[in-house]
Amino acid sequence: MTTDTTTDAASGDRGKPEPGRDPLRPPEPVVPDTTSQERRAIAEQFGLQQMGVRPPLGKYIRDVASRWAFIRVLGTATAYSKNQNNYLGQLWAVLNPILNATVYILIFGILLGTTRGLENAIAFIVIGTFLYRFFEQSVHAGSRSIAQKTNLIRSLHFPRAVLPIAQVVSLLTTLVPALVVMCAIVLLSGLLPKYPMEHITWSWLLLPAIVALMWVFNTGVAFIVARAVAITPDLDNIIGFVLRLVMYGSGVIFPVTHYVYRLPEAVQPVIGAILEYQPIGVFLYVARSILTQEPSMPQDPWMWLWAAGWAVVTFVVGFIVFWRGEERYGRD
């Protein structure tokens, strides 16, 4: 049978009697006429750069900065394409967080009453859930930013840091209309009986500042998870649980610091400080302090400093962590 001779010839068990090479077999691999050292010497002599090595940090930062237009277009396009396949379209960018907040208001605010001691539970929960959603989605988007774009990575050259940045930019563009709705709900909740009136004060002008800090912070976190998940895809499964722990631990839907007194006294100051000064807790505190007149949440410049500190440190650390893995993305 012909196939059998093919298999035998291909595996090289038998030489053919005819002179010359068996046409079914390729020639033996070429032995290069230069050694590895000679080739590298040639490369050096003619000033050739090695491909696929991580560029120095300074050059990398300039590269990323020069791709800002790409980041913006990719980010807005991603945001737009997300809500394109249904009738209400872009309206879902606003409806989704509203429904999300409604669920928590019903369960935690009204049924369980975990927000006792607060004057305006609705404002508290709405601000918490809208802003936490921004963080949560940034982490998820960051974790998928490399794996989802493997094809793009394998066809085009660009600093890979563009991908997580663009993901968070895309979330920011959907957050802006949602924030308008969030402010409206905060105002309207003041009209309900039993709730005190909410006023628009000068401090509302600070909202863009805290959102900007949160954006910087989220980008830093997105860098870190992007690298972690790109190298170890299993971590993607854990992120959901960590995010839920963070959500309940940062007082998104109830003032978690009010429950610290239930812990043993020895750990109370430590746990209390952690809960109060961890980044999400800080961002939410600042946002609530500028939007509501909750007596337990006065304006506090120190919290602003904490927020700025967290944002800058996380961004810088995240960027460096991501850059250090640059040459590995796309290899799989």
Partner: peptide, 13 residues
């Protein structure tokens, strides 16, 4: 330079 090598290198102008 789109797929990083396991070993060896590519040098280019």
């Amino acid at each position: 330079g789109l797929i990083p090598p396991r070993s060896g290198g590519v040098y280019v102008a």
